[in-house]
Computed example of a mutant assay.
Amino acid sequence: MLRHANILGYLGSDMASRNSCTQLLLVAHYHPLGSLYDHLNRQTLTLDHCLLLLISAVNGLNHLHSELHGTQGKPAIAHRDIKTKNILVKNNGECVIADLGLAVTHRQGHIDLGNNLRVGTRRYMPPEVLDESINKESFESFLKSDMYAFGLVMWEVTRRCSSSGRAEPYRPPYHDVVPADPGFDDMRKIVCVDQHRPVIPNHWSGHPTLVGMAKLMKECWHHSAMVRLTALRLKKSLVRLEGAIKPANNKVDL
């Protein structure tokens, strides 16, 4: 039940020996457009394409977050390392969520943290992870961490959207306030102490859809985890924004 149009398809795995070295092989579907990070660095986006990328990505995240019951059910899964480099772009312009190496599962009230206590990529860590106040006994805490990171992804994607003939150059979150490879202390000061968040471009204010998207990303990266949107709520809100600007059968030009 993990198979989904917006989650990277797993085909198989193997272990081989080469020159006395053990190789661990993971086989997955191939998407030649590469990561969302690469995609955003290559080109600007139309508003339609921007929304398609985000709606499909949050659709995959919502499926991960959902526990499905029954004999063919699946546990709820928190990704714990959401970022543009862990999201791939399909030929049809949709996204798939990839790299579940740090995932946490939850089934029937039991949280399985596994043996890996790493917590993801520092640039995308929410305040409760940076200041170590996250409640690791609550699975909801991990879901809210994913939503904080997804809010940053939304900002990265929307900046590349052309409005009034203008799109911002690609930049990673907090590019203007931390080093290229920020440490925990760098991020803790900016996110927890200063409560700084990415700057919303001024020219978005002239476009109702971009204003709506800015509001949603702010709700995702709110300092208080309990205020953040769920993946399902965000998906529904983005679909409403999409419905206000184009018919459902419009095609996206890649």
Score class of each variant (00 low, 15 high):
residue 57 A to E: 05
residue 58 V to W: 06
residue 52 L to P: 01
residue 79 H to V: 01
residue 67 E to K: 08
residue 52 L to Q: 13
residue 50 C to G: 08
residue 80 R to Q: 11
residue 81 D to K: 06
residue 69 H to A: 02
residue 82 I to S: 03
residue 79 H to R: 02
residue 88 L to P: 00
residue 81 D to I: 00
residue 83 K to C: 06
residue 78 A to I: 04
residue 67 E to Y: 07
residue 68 L to Q: 10
residue 82 I to C: 05
residue 47 L to M: 15
residue 67 E to T: 03
residue 39 H to C: 07
residue 54 L to R: 03
residue 76 A to S: 02
residue 91 N to S: 15
residue 48 D to C: 12
residue 68 L to D: 08
residue 81 D to S: 02
residue 57 A to Q: 00
residue 62 N to Q: 11
residue 61 L to Y: 06
residue 55 I to H: 09
residue 76 A to W: 06
residue 43 Q to P: 12
residue 75 P to L: 04
residue 61 L to D: 03
residue 79 H to M: 05
residue 55 I to Y: 00
residue 75 P to S: 04
residue 42 R to K: 13
residue 81 D to W: 06
residue 44 T to Y: 10
residue 81 D to T: 02
residue 75 P to I: 08
residue 65 H to D: 05
residue 46 T to F: 15
residue 82 I to T: 01
residue 69 H to Q: 11
residue 88 L to W: 03
residue 55 I to N: 03
residue 83 K to H: 04
residue 64 L to T: 01
residue 76 A to L: 03
residue 91 N to Y: 15
residue 75 P to K: 01
residue 42 R to A: 11
residue 68 L to S: 04
residue 77 I to D: 04
residue 64 L to E: 03
residue 57 A to W: 00
residue 87 I to Q: 04
residue 40 L to I: 02
residue 62 N to Y: 12
residue 74 K to W: 08
residue 75 P to V: 00
residue 65 H to F: 00
residue 66 S to L: 07
residue 38 D to F: 14
residue 63 H to Q: 09
residue 46 T to L: 11
residue 53 L to G: 11
residue 44 T to K: 13
residue 38 D to Y: 14
residue 85 K to V: 01
residue 63 H to D: 11
residue 61 L to W: 09
residue 81 D to M: 04
residue 47 L to H: 10
residue 39 H to T: 13
residue 57 A to R: 03
residue 38 D to H: 13
residue 60 G to I: 13
residue 80 R to C: 05
residue 78 A to C: 06
residue 86 N to A: 05
residue 60 G to N: 09
residue 84 T to L: 03
residue 85 K to I: 01
residue 39 H to S: 11
residue 72 Q to L: 11
residue 72 Q to N: 10
residue 52 L to K: 13
residue 85 K to M: 02
residue 67 E to P: 01
residue 82 I to K: 04
residue 69 H to E: 03
residue 67 E to M: 07
residue 47 L to N: 06
residue 88 L to M: 12
residue 90 K to D: 10
residue 91 N to H: 15
residue 90 K to H: 15
residue 82 I to A: 05
residue 61 L to K: 05
residue 86 N to R: 05
residue 45 L to P: 13
residue 60 G to S: 07
residue 71 T to R: 06
residue 68 L to F: 14
residue 80 R to K: 01
residue 69 H to K: 13
residue 44 T to F: 08
residue 70 G to Y: 08
residue 77 I to G: 08
residue 50 C to L: 09
residue 53 L to C: 14
residue 60 G to V: 11
residue 75 P to A: 06
